[in-house]
Each structure stands twice: as C-alpha cells, then as structure tokens.
Design a protein around this nucleic acid. Structure first.
Length: 468
DNA sequence: ATAGGGTTAG
C-alpha cells in the first residue's frame, strides 16, 4: 500500500492520512502506527493531520496517557501539536471526567501559544455539565468564550439545551431555543434534544409542538425522534399508539439498530404480553450484529426472568460471556430482581455478594431491589441492615422501606424515615404517607405508644401541607 | 463535544 503512495508525490501524505484515518476508525491503532513508520522509511512524511488522527484514536479507544505519549513522538518528528491535537486530548480527558487533566491541557495549550477554539470550550463545558457543575459551565461561556471573541455555534447550543433539559430546566431550554433561532439554524439534533427533554419532563404539549416545529423547518424525523416519541407513548400508557408507531418505524427502516425494539419489548413485558415480546425480540436478534449489544441482551434476560424461564437465563448468561460482553449494573439488577421475584432469595443474596467479587459496586437500584425483595419475603431485619449500609439512597429506597415497615407494624420507624425524606426535600409518593397515617390511626392499647403516634401524625400532616 | 433503547418502590 505504501509503495503505491510513492508514485504520487504531493498527494501521498493525503493518501497516508486517509489510510491512517480508516485504520484508526476501526481501532486498528498498531497497524496505523506501523503504516506511518513504513511511510517514513519510504519517504512519505506524516504531517500534523496524520498525528492528530492517531492521537484521536488513542484518546478514544486506549487512554489519555497513551494519546499524550504520541504527542512526544510527534515532536520528535519535528511536528508541533496544534489546536486539533489538544482538542483530541481534551476530549479524551473529558470523557473520563478528568477535569484536572482537562485544565492542565488547556494551560499547556496556552503556554504553547495556541488559543482554544469553540470546540475546546464546547468540550470543557460539556465536561462541567456532566459533573453537574452548571454554574461553572455557564461561566466559561460568558467569560472565556466571549472574551476570546468566539461565538457559540449550533453545537454549543445543543450542549446547553441538553444540559438544561436533563437538569429539569425545560422552561429555560425553550427560551434558549427561541433565542438561538435568531442566531443559528437549528439542526435535527437540536429538535431531538428538546423533544426528548420535554417528553422526559412530561411536557407532552410542548413536545408535540416541538415535533411540529421540526417538520415545519423541513427536517424529516429520524430513528432518534421516533424512538423518543415511542417512549413517550409507553410512559403515558398509550401502548397501542406506541405499537402503531413501531410498525411505521419498521416500514420506514428506522429499527435497524434495535433501540426501538428494546423499548417495545420492555413495554410489552410490563403489560404482561410476553408472547408479543418474544416475537419482537426475535426480530431484533435476527437482524444485524450491530443491534446485539449489552442493552439488548439485558432486555432479553429480563424477558426470560419475567417468564420464569431459568434454563434460558443460564444459557443466555453463558452466551453473553462467550461473546465478550461485559455485564453492567442493569444486568446485575435484572438478575437480582429476577431471582427475588421467583422466590430465590438466597440466590439473589449470593449474586449481590458476587458483584463485589467482580470488582464492581452494587448500584443503588440493585440494592433497592434487594431491600424490597427481602422485605416481601419476610426478612425485614436483613433488609434494614442493607438499608443501613447504603451510603446513598433515593426515593425508591425510602418508598419501599416505608411501605414495608408499615406492613410489618413498625410505624414509629416508618414515620421517622418519612419525615426525614420531607426534610431532605425528597419526592415521596403520597401512597407512602397514606400508608403511614392509616397505620398510625389504628388503635394501640399501649398508652405511651399512642402518644407517640399522635405526635407523629401531627408532624406528617403538617409536612403534607408543605409537600403535597 | 451534543440527541434515542434496557433495571427498582407505590
């Protein structure tokens, strides 16, 4: 291949870059590097683009240190890194949320006399957003971007909109959308981000409005748009409408990657339609290898568990390992929850322990399932021990514990936990409050307990006014 | 750099 390049001096480096680019794209970094070395031997000199391509590959697929090591080799070859080099390194560090590293690279870039561009700042801002540090992200936009004389592009707005939506500030997102339309042309992605954010916060009317805006602006909805709408239908219990949309998606070729299938299957499982779920899952597994990822395996695993098909579960777990997919938090939750719902309490506890042995930390969702399952199997004491050991808990943890303590007659404990939720501003469904109050209302013979109950009731009712 | 799928309580 390289010998061929020799025949075309001048364009040979361009051809080298194209080859290096496609090798890097398919994670073939060693081959890309040896191609560069062969090239040098034969007089085809790599340029800054060649090295940037390689650095980008290392940064994406290997690691930030390995990517950085290439910049040294680059300098040795007499080529100085440019802004694109640093942007690749920065995005690698940002992907792993290594904020210190990101800042270090910014400093180094400035010291080399290079100015960060809009892409650099976009990466920095998205890193701050992912860390939940919105204030600092906006500070970068207002102070650094404008100071540098840069102006936000549509991609900057996309990042801002997504962050606003995901943090629940959908009103601000809508305002920002109206503003950005006066400055840049929204992309299809811009609409998709907004529709998704509006759907997730149940702003159905606005979501439909944005969908119409999308079509008015001349774009055609894509697989992402439709999958988002599909989820909205399922969430609002419009199963038939969702299934109709899925049919349309299939006809128009929007189900190639299996995303929609997974959404449909899990909706069918939840509504007890296992037969149809199997049918839909079969379509997914028949299609290209691209759609068989850990998410589709998790979906299928959940289906087998909900169907009580433990033999199929075993086979599937073996297949997952054989194919080299790595079980994630969802996989473990599905296993623990599946075992619990089939009455295999000991098996679930064993699996929970084995997560730690695999070097992973059981997720909060997995623990929530375990707590709920233990309670329902009558082991409230064991559940409360796990509850006590959890460093972070969410509304699922508390809702489950409060309900189960009520059922177990531990009303004072349930009341205290419920009150602590109100104090922390946690959103607890009103059903939990009703359970506690009706428990407390039951007459107790013991005079002291009765007094405590009355006090608890008063405190909870007082909170009910402030947290309806 | 930025969009969609899979797990839990009532």
């Amino acid at each position: 291949m390289v010998r061929g390049l020799m025949k075309f001096p001048g364009i040979s480096t361009k051809l080298l870059n194209i080859s290096v680019g496609s090798l890097c794209k398919f994670r073939n970094l060693e081959k890309a590097e040896s191609l560069i070395i062969d090239g040098i031997r034969l007089g085809v000199l790599p340029d800054v683009v060649t090295y940037n391509t390689l650095i980008n590959g290392y940064s994406r697929f290997v690691g930030i240190d390995e990517a950085y090591a290439v910049t040294r080799r680059m300098r040795e070859a007499g080529i100085e890194p440019d802004v694109a080099t640093y942007n690749s390194l920065i995005s690698g560090a940002a992907r792993h949320l290594m904020l210190n590293r990101v800042h270090q690279l910014f400093d180094e870039m400035l010291h080399s006399g290079l100015s960060p561009d809009m892409w650099s700042y976009n990466t920095l801002m998205s890193c701050y957003f992912k860390l939940g540090r919105h204030g600092e992200a906006f500070r970068i936009l207002h102070e650094h971007v404008h100071l540098a004389g840069l102006s936000p592009g549509v991609d900057t707005y996309n990042i801002l909109l997504d962050a606003l939506c995901k943090s629940g500030h959908t009103d601000n997102a809508i305002e920002l959308f109206k503003h950005l339309k006066t400055r840049v042309k929204p992309e299809l992605m811009t609409y998709n981000i907004l529709i998704n954010g509006l759907c997730k916060s149940r702003r159905v009317g606005y979501a439909n409005w944005m969908f119409r805006e999308l079509k008015k602006s001349g774009y055609t909805p894509n697989a992402v748009t439709y999958t988002t709408m599909l989820k909205l239908y399922f969430k609002t219990k419009r199963i038939e409408k969702g299934l109709q949309l899925f049919l349309k998606m299939k006809k128009e070729g929007h189900t190639f990657d299996g995303y929609a299938n997974c959404a449909v299957v899990s909706a069918l499982i939840k509504t007890g339609r296992a037969e149809e779920a199997y049918e839909c899952m079969k379509e997914l597994m028949r299609s290209g290898t691209r759609s068989k990822d850990i998410v589709s395996y998790n979906t299928l695993l959940n289906l087998y568990f909900k169907d009580g098909n433990l033999d199929a579960v075993d086979d599937l777990l073996e297949e997952i390992e054989l194919k080299g997919f790595k079980p994630d938090d969802y996989t473990h939750t599905i296993i623990v929850n599946g075992l619990l719902s089939l009455g295999h309490i000991g098996g679930a506890e064993k699996h929970l322990a084995c997560i730690g042995e695999l070097g992973m930390q059981p997720s909060i969702v997995t623990c929530n399932c375990m707590i709920d399952g233990l309670c329902k199997a009558g082991h409230v004491d064991r559940a409360m021990r796990l509850f006590a050991s959890m460093k972070v808990r969410d509304e699922y943890t508390y809702t489950s514990v409060v309900h189960n303590l009520c059922k177990d007659g531990q009303l004072v404990c349930a009341s205290k936990l419920l009150l602590s939720c109100y104090n922390e501003g946690m959103k607890i469904p009103s059903s939990a409050r009703r359970a506690v109050l009706s428990g407390l209302r039951m007459t107790v013979s013991n005079q002291a307990a009765r007094k405590t109950h009355i006090k608890m009731k008063a405190a909870i009712e007082c909170n009910a006014v402030m947290h309806p």
